[in-house]
Amino acid sequence: MEKKTRLEDFDFAGGEVLLFDKPYKWTSFDVVNKVRYKVKVKKVGHAGTLDPLATGLLILCTGKMTKQIQFIQAEEKEYIGQMVIGQTTPSHDLETEVENEQDISHITVENLHELLPRFTGKIQQIPPAHSAIKVNGKRAYSAARQGKEIKLDPREVEIRELEIINVDFPKVDFRMVCSKGTYVRSFVRDFGEALGAGAYMSALKRTRIGEYKLEDAYQLEEFIDIIQEQ
């Protein structure tokens, strides 16, 4: 997807599909609100949330193209992630404090690769309690952050591709291609449990949604500079 570089090339009311590299610690709605304010169009929405501690491809649709959001959301996603094995956190990422440190000296690179088939294909996955799923009309993360017990039902997801791309114990880098609704944090939690050592996700970057690729995305400040050009 070729990036537009001049303000006159855009038609925000008529409809645009905009690719962004979401900044670290920004919520998806932070990006939506920033872009909505800059392009001065009310109808702006995102096609698939990224957690604040994740970076990478976030797709926004404006104007009449917001009708395409549901179709873009349904596309498969690709991620590059990093887990730390031998430790866990309540949120399964760096939102909460590290706990339960375990010895991992017995775990080998071969052990990691041997587990990959168990997590490839259609699997049952329990979403993390620290997620935006609604329970009794409220977001699960609201109750989880208050220390309340949250029970979420397992759901079927599909991990179509899964590979280990680098190992520097306790850090393990991986690439995943998965269906809509897959929680990478849940995969990391379950992978760590299968190793008998626990794990949490220390980094996550979304690199693709369907045919849309991160390499074609705007940096937020780059886009704002284009919009503000005279």
Rank of each mutant, 00 (worst) to 15 (best):
E2T: 11
D103W: 07
I123V: 15
M65P: 00
R189M: 01
I80F: 05
Y37G: 12
M1Q: 11
T49I: 06
E222G: 01
F169Y: 09
L195W: 08
N111C: 06
D30L: 08
E156M: 15
I227G: 02
I209C: 14
V167G: 12
N136E: 13
E110N: 11
G81K: 02
M83D: 02
T88N: 00
I72M: 11
I209W: 06
G14K: 11
D51N: 03
A194I: 11
G63V: 08
K138T: 04
F174H: 02
E76T: 15
K42V: 08
L57Q: 10
P127D: 04
S179A: 07
F169M: 14
F10D: 07
I133A: 05
F169H: 07
I224C: 02
K77M: 11
A140H: 05
M1H: 13
N111G: 04
D153T: 10
K43M: 14
A203P: 05
Q68M: 12
V109T: 13
V167R: 12
G121R: 12
E161S: 15
D11R: 14
T88G: 00
Q219N: 01
K3P: 05
I226E: 04
G192K: 04
K22E: 03
G86D: 03
K213C: 06
H106F: 14
A140R: 02
F187R: 07
P90K: 02
P90I: 03
